[in-house]
């Protein structure tokens, strides 16, 4: 098994938490893992990405080769297409649809959404809405991860394990909220695919 994943978003949107969740789940499943993160300057509201590589055999490079990623998981729509050259032609593009506008000249959504849809395998969800529905506005990142789960081949029990390690010290309620966010994202993908 091999899954090369690009996580994309804007500094402060919580992609490192997505990365940590998948990472810990992968370790719990006994997979090899490399996960290149962006720290430093770009975290101040700049574009950030993380390369996450899971495999059942040892991994060499910390970076994913261009055109080889199996998946892009983006918490922001413009950021989702920034990394399309990294994606393999049959890879999945999974993105939240809420724009994070902190620059002049942010593209028109009427142009952006068709661009995303032009990629054969894509999922667009409203992660903010789902997060609000479950009563946890700040969980849009976990909802977006949930939307990617159907393509990830990591069982729920490993993810639950990871969430316990990450949030357990903040109480069981936090763990349950995050689980709900994952389920909410999964459901959004199902609904998107059913149209």
């Amino acid at each position: 098994m091999k899954k090369d994943i690009i996580l994309a978003g804007v500094g402060g949107q919580g992609i490192l938490t997505i990365a940590a969740t998948i990472g810990l789940a992968a370790v719990s499943k006994g997979l090899y893992l490399k996960q290149a993160e962006v720290h430093g300057m770009s975290q101040r509201g700049g574009a950030v990405q993380s390369h996450l590589r899971l495999s059942s055999s040892p991994i060499h490079s910390d970076l994913i080769p261009r055109g080889k990623a199996d998946m892009i998981i983006a918490v922001e729509p413009m950021e989702s297409i920034r990394y399309i050259p990294m994606l393999s032609p049959d890879g999945w593009l999974i993105t939240n649809n809420t724009p994070y506008v902190n620059i002049p000249g942010y593209p028109d959504m009427n142009a952006l959404l068709p661009e995303i849809r032009s990629h054969h395998n894509h999922i667009i969800i409203d992660a903010e809405q789902t997060a609000r529905d479950i009563g946890s506005k700040r969980s849009a990142n976990m909802v977006t991860l949930g939307a990617a789960l159907p393509f990830l081949e990591i069982e729920m029990k490993h993810l639950e394990d990871a969430l316990r390690q990450l949030f357990g010290h903040k109480g069981e309620e936090m763990v349950q909220t995050n689980l709900k966010a994952l389920e909410g994202g999964k459901k959004a993908t199902r609904e998107y695919q059913e149209g």
Binding site: S42, A47, M78, I81, E115
Partner: peptide
Amino acid sequence: VSDLVQVRPPK
């Protein structure tokens, strides 16, 4: 990369 994508520098 699509022309729609703008640079997003830190601020």
